[in-house]
Design a protein around this nucleic acid. Sequence first.
DNA 1: GTTGGTTCACTTTTT
DNA 2: GTGAACCAAC
Length: 975
Amino acid sequence: MALKSANNPQDILIESLDGIYLVDAGAGTGKTYSIVRRYGNLLDKKVKPEEILLITFSRNAAEQMKDEVITNLSGKISISRLLEAPIMTFHSFCSKVIKSAGTDSPLTMGINENISGNFDILEEKTIERELFRRFYFTFRKNNSKGFEEIFQSLENKIDDVLSMIKKLCSKGIFPGKKSWNESDLASLTGNFERFSEEFDRLNAPKPGKKKDVVNNDISISFKKLIREKLYLEIDESKIFNEHVLNPDSKEYIFFDDSQKNFIEFFRRVYISYIEFLLKKNMLNYEFLVMFAYISILKNQNFRKKIQYRYVMIDEFQDTDEIQFKLIMLLCKNINDTANLCVVGDWKQGIYGFRNTNIKNITDFSENLTAYKNELNSTEKIIEYDVTKHKRIIFENNYRSSKLILNFSKDTLLIKATKNEEPDSEFVKKFFENPLLPMRKLDDMTEINFYEAEDKSSEYNLLIQKISELVNENKKYKIREFDKDGNSIERNVRYSDICVLSRNRNFCLEFQREALKQDIPVNYSGGMEIFLSEQGILVNAWLKLLLNDRDISGWLPVLDKEGYAYSEINKFAEILVKESSGNTLYNSYPDEKLGNFLNHLKNNSSDIQFAAGTVLNRYGFDDAVSIKITEVISNWINSGLTSLSDIVRLIDNSSDDEFSIDYGDISDAVLTQTIHKSKGLEYPVVIIANMNVKVFPDTKGEQGVISFVDNAGLRLKTQFGFNGKYYYKFSNWHTDFTNAVLKQKDYDEERRLLYVAVTRAKQYLFFTSYSPSIFFTELSEKSGIRAENDFSYGVLPVKTAKISEAISIPKPHKKENQVKLVSVHSLMEKHEQDIAESFKSGNDFEFRKSLGSAEKGILIHRLAQKLAAGIEIESKLPEVNKIKKFLQGLNSSKLMSEVNIIYPKDNEVIRGTIDLLAFYEDKIVIYDYKTDESKNNLPKYKIQMNIYKECLQQIYADKPVECKIYFLTLDEFVDV
DNA sequence: GTTGGTTCACTTTTT
DNA sequence: GTGAACCAAC
């Protein structure tokens, strides 16, 4: 460890106890160590442990911090007092706050509902989504008046509504019972002034162009939007002025009449959801922080009581806006100042998607002032002075070699796309010098780049490189340091190596490939457990338990049993025939499987038993299987007790990930995502999968609701009538406003790269098969050329049969399974051909005709009721036509909305037939269409022929006819 | 050089 | 559904 000196920033921090401090603690600079020593110094100064609040973000970090404090400081004060000291996570602190004084805090929002002391926290995403869905359907029923168009525009994007609620909450925007508060409403509405400034800046002609008036980027992107999307009521002549944009169109673009109603709608969903959860005695993590914040803010007595003399916050780059404000409320005013110490590293802020904000650190000073003003707007709540604070920078790095530290600075300064430039001024301002290496590793360090030919050779390359590292003991050595800085050298072990990737799938696939070649690899991180073989089989059997004629249950089961495709097909056909009403086949396809199903049925009330028995049957007992049973029993404990609940939940959450440690080989390479690796360190780091479209990730924002700074809260879609059809159009106000105000930035991708690189102590390698710009830029900037002919003989680990020790998960992608496709998706394939033929004519007409779906769905629903003999009053002319049509049918039997499942080629087709009429000598398929023209007839014929082909096989004894009824035209067409 | 069309690959995780 | 890369056409 470095010598104690007045110049060492660590020592400065440890001695600086009073006042506000922002500690910029880079990677590997001994942050935890310093915090513990500072804590010790406070105890030396006779500060009581209960007067020091120490907050971290994760449970692990909190536990570790408490352990360190107890281990190092128990000489100064009794262990029992340290055990009770407030050293905890942010959320457990909030939970404590609510339990002690926040139970009536909903009242301040106008909600007549207390939080009971023993509330539950919604920990699992899947369960919260399921609850929210249930809430939403009731909400929709009760609030259809005035919001019909919004519900139509949102369609079934229920998850988007939930994530926006959470986003607003973490930004400190809370709903009121009757209205938004003024400043929240302002940020939800947006800021026209700022829009206007940005618009003018972007609309200036590009310098250096030939012509006087030329297209600028913003007009190009507007034109592209118009070309590609379908907009309602947009007057292009108002916006475009030759090639640039008309500056007078700013108001026209920015102000959207429907926005006000949407913001009001959103307040209602938001507050109703809070009420819904409170009634169930539940809180999610966001509402937990919200209520803690509110109860401290609104209750002066309580606030005085809960404030601390000393507050220390770790991992400050992982806080969001509301957490920053809450922290300010927790500091006691002592002699006009607060004793607040926040420690973090903005360069490692990689949780933007979770609404954390690195500006909490980079704009620390401005935020302190702004939040103080905001909190004090009605009464004086923050009394201490926020203008005086010090910034302490930790620059001594106790982890990596000089080579790696110098290299790491480049990661923040490289381009992420061809035409993008990083903000080097910003980086210079907050990260002037590379960290100083405290470890002598210069004789044992290396950075290298490797390029493979394709995906599978990248896996092989990794495996070979790992083999080389472990076996070439002269070339690679690990140097370890003890507490006094003395070092020893030894050979590389598998467990010294970490393979990092931007995404999870690469890690899991790499693990599988490595295990095949007997190279030991463990994985730690999230996994879509219900898409694993284990998950798919459990889901399948549960489906069969619910309904033993369910084809989607039988497919994976028969596949696993080794049935040939043609045999599976045969059975599927039988089920199809049965689904049309006749039971043709009463037994199971396989006696063994039937017996097993009966075994499950005998215990069918016990879902956990069923899941466990299924996993047992196939001999699964690995981490994935354990997680599956754990998750299912969690669901059951949360009140989702029926089999159909569970089956639906698995279907809905198949792409939800659950955290697992996969593989427990003692000496093994670890593979994980970069996010997961934050806070850890390894002698050897291989950053793999540096491929285009993967890292940097270029995926844009998704979701139907957008909330962009200064643009406000807006809906991306708009339901309306274009003179001919009701249709869900894109909202051009939203698209255009966001095109001006929302800039895609890659800073977080660069920080992610920074995190990855700074994990490495001695050896750092990059691999890729389709090099991304990060890969090439880093290689170029560092002057290290990528090798593309690396090879090394793999030496398998002979001591253990690793591939048998743990079962290897099957590929995630369902490509090996029988595909289920809808008739409509088949039609879409043909649409491309039809689109070709429309190209010369009117493409717009073609697209518009696809959009009449809304009305069509309504009519189909009514038609189903009519066929079932239910009387309906309706003003729609189509309904009367259907009535008349049905009366004149004269058939012996009618079936409406007949679901068909039909195996064809390599796919299983699903679809719904509107109406089947049975006659003595024939069967007729009727399909209603609400089009106003017969333009789509070729497409519909494809659909009809599929139905016909399917039906003809089931009823081979009678001819099947097919008729399309164009309701609007009142015309029948034979197919 | 600019523009437009087509193709390609698809997230990260903690409380 | 989306942004970037690539390519062909002016």
